[in-house]
Write a protein that binds this DNA or RNA. Structure first.
Length: 420
DNA sequence: TCTGGGGTCCTAGGACCC
DNA sequence: TCTGGGGTCCTAGGACCC
């Protein structure tokens, strides 16, 4: 049996941990740039705030119902996530950290008789130690555990735990789950399935195997197995190194000047390079994209991207920046109002296995040491103290974050103060 | 009229996830 | 005025090889 533990309305719950006055009140957390609602408390959901709604479209709803609004505070969410995951890891020998707010636990080696009771204990402990409410789904496969979790959220709000103990409970969950709500079925597949008369997961498990293979490839085949109780999705017990790393942001306001965009490109590249060094990888290619705002139909639109191979794979900030700025020069056109750009470093290889170049004149060892010092200093001070001139200081493209809460758990200056 | 057969590698794009 | 960010996997089709 496997468990899927999922934090309820995670970002909204994080905001509540250090601000208990928010208990029982509608809360939403906005995406970067205070763009869209990406997390909602139950009360906000009840008011009809849909996932991904642009904030400016629900201004009236927010005002009339006194919805508490927060900008995303990833320092806080990341840290609370680590704490939740640490607790979960103490309950099972094999835990897969699936996302910032979810983990799979392998319970098969454990001697527990009553998994329902175990689920409730996990839930109580996480709540007590972190303040975060979680829901637990338990079932014979990952996909069914996801389904059990969803079932618990909808139908077992009192306990927050649901165990698909036998065929009877499995069938009940399958019948309860519309095809579009199955983990691994997105809008396209859902449409296809509905067109062909499959409404719920219970219908889908009766589908002919060759039809599923033809229409939904091997992905569908695996999914069908999982729904039938045969584990078919691999476990990732340690996080594998990333194969590509992306840093992209919308600008706080539309940008027209190349020098401003260069600054953003330099900063995004520096962020990618830092992430590369953290996982000890080098990139063989760097990809840059630049775009206008597609929502502004009245404006001329421009969307370009370019991929540049590096002669020698690298994670060196100045070297990658130089290439990125060269790439920007290639695709930048005057006369557009730019909304967003991004850097993707691709084809990552372990830093220890970099193929050196025949005509390479760089002193890579020395460059690497400089980066090491830079990372060390920046980490120690908890911010980007050391940076390169092209990154600039005043960020003209900076994000809008009007309602940012304190980084309670990772910055000593922002810790909760108690008055006696 | 008629134009081989079998294989690998790479890339772009689609679909999905949170 | 204002519309997120960061990933993975799979397939089809083209380029190339002998």
């Amino acid at each position: 049996m496997f468990a899927l533990v999922d934090c309820n309305n995670f970002y909204a719950s994080c905001e509540r941990v250090f601000n208990p006055k928010l208990e029982g009140k509608p809360i939403i957390v906005l995406s970067n740039n205070d763009g869209c609602a990406i997390a909602r408390s139950e009360e906000a959901k009840a008011l009809g705030v849909e996932m991904g709604t642009p904030a400016f479209m629900i201004e009236d709803l927010i005002r009339d119902n006194n919805i508490q609004v927060f900008s995303s505070n990833y320092s806080l969410y990341g840290d609370l996530s680590d704490r939740v995951m640490t607790i979960l890891s103490s309950y099972a020998p094999q835990v897969e950290l699936y996302s910032i707010d979810e983990a799979f636990l392998d319970l098969s080696q454990l001697a527990y008789e009553d998994l329902q009771e175990l689920g409730q204990r996990i839930r109580a402990t996480v709540r007590q130690h972190t303040g975060i409410p979680v829901t637990v789904g338990i079932a014979p496969t990952k996909t069914l555990a996801k389904m059990a979790n969803r079932f618990a959220k909808k139908k077992r709000k009192d306990t927050g735990v649901h165990w698909l103990k036998g065929p009877e409970q499995i069938l009940e969950a399958l019948e309860f789950t519309a095809v579009g709500d199955i983990w691994g079925i997105g809008p396209q597949r859902a449409k296809l399935l509905l067109r062909n008369g499959f409404k719920t997961a219970a219908d889908l498990i009766k589908a002919p195997e060759d039809w599923v293979l033809k229409q939904m490839t091997v992905v569908g085949q695996r999914l069908l197995n999982e729904l039938r109780g045969i584990p078919s999705i691999e476990w990732e017990l340690e996080t594998p190194p990333k194969k590509s790393i992306c840093t992209s942001r919308s600008f706080g306001k539309l940008m027209t000047e190349k020098k401003d965009i260069s600054q953003a490109v330099a900063n995004y590249t520096a962020a990618c390079a830092e992430k590369l060094r953290t996982q000890n990888s080098c990139a063989e290619k760097i990809h840059l994209f630049l775009q206008t705002n597609p929502h502004r139909v009245e404006d001329p639109q421009y969307f370009r991207s370019i991929t540049v191979p590096l002669t020698v794979a690298s994670n060196n900030t100045p070297e990658l920046t130089k290439t990125a700025l060269w790439a920007l020069n290639k695709i930048f056109r005057h006369g557009f109002k730019y909304m967003k750009c991004g850097i993707i470093v691709m084809d990552l290889v372990p830093a220890t296995e970099v193929q050196s170049g025949l005509f390479d004149k760089k002193n890579r060892k020395k460059d690497g040491q400089v980066m090491q010092v830079l990372d060390k200093v920046n980490r120690q001070f908890g911010k980007e103290l050391l940076r390169f001139a092209v990154q600039g200081y005043e960020k003209r493209y900076k994000l809008r974050q009007a309602s940012l809460s304190p980084r309670y758990t990772t910055r000593i200056e922002e810790i909760v103060k108690v008055k006696l």
